[in-house]
Amino acid sequence: MTEPLLRVDGLKTHFLTRAGTVKAVDGVSLRLDRGEILGLVGESGSGKSVTGQSILGLVDPPGRVVGGRVLFQGEDLVGAGEKRLRAIRGRRIAMIFQDPMMTLNPVLSIGTQMVEAVQAHEKVGRAEAWERSRRALVRVGIASPDERLAAYPHQFSGGMRQRVAIAIALLHSPDLIIADEPTTALDVTIQAQILFEVQKLCRETGTALIWVTHDLAVVSALADRVAVMYAGRVVETGTVAEIIGNPRHPYTRGLLESVPSRNRRGVPLRSIPGMTPSVLDLPEGCAFHPRCDRSTGACTVMPELSGEREDRAWRCWNPVAAEARGDAA
């Protein structure tokens, strides 16, 4: 097997708080090839966003990466110095956040911010940087880019701002984009436009993408592979067809059955009982076992991630039987 673009190995990010150590990410391993789209799925507090931030060394104190490796094209980013990380951020790995109003500076025009982003990594003239910014805006489907470059963030709608954020991420044709819930705040028709552009861009440029989200429906339409997270760990990973069509971890199955769908109209949803455990006080062993209908005595010991392949595995002592599930609408 060739060396993947990104390999995350046993990543641990802990937050040392007064109330105790929060193990937000506790031994996460992922791999991503060139041009591949990975959906990183989980509910609030599962550690999906912190995983994305840890890859780029963007975790704020009191959070700290305390273990594991992030190998990007063979180079370990966990031990890398701030200077090296700055050279990589934005240029080789770009990030898109949920709220573009937080990433864009409200007092600078879009053009100024984009030119700044180009010149941060490359010695190019202002005119050339401007032209590159213009082309990036056209690529994400923004009409009349010259006027838009002169405008300020507040003059844009939410969907347009997110397009600008994507355009900025594309400026240096990065090898990898990490997108943290970028369409969660958007309306359905606008979300569809963004997904359309992203899908097209990844196909055209061969950029790999990690799409962090809680929305299984978005992931199933967009991603190639999925990793499901629960309480700081990956509990199941596989291709979209495998995860949606034949989930093996009871949590994944529970998530899928919680989504209202056409086939189950009017009948009660099979919800997962209980709630997500506090990360300060995780249950012993498999963190899901108190909510799980398949749990046995074995579940008080943490199961290892195991399965058919390295990228088709689950972390469960009593996995759901391998069978074709017919009700995925």
């Binding site: 028709t189 997904l195 359309f196 929305d215 199933s220 949606i244």
Partner: peptide, 24 residues
């Protein structure tokens, strides 16, 4: 029609988004 077409659904089939243009 547009709204229903574009709402993402949990599905094993990968799909192409063909969004309606323009903003609200």
């Amino acid at each position: 029609k547009a709204l229903l077409d574009e709402a993402p659904r949990v599905s094993v089939e990968k799909r192409r988004f063909a969004p309606i243009r323009g903003e609200i």
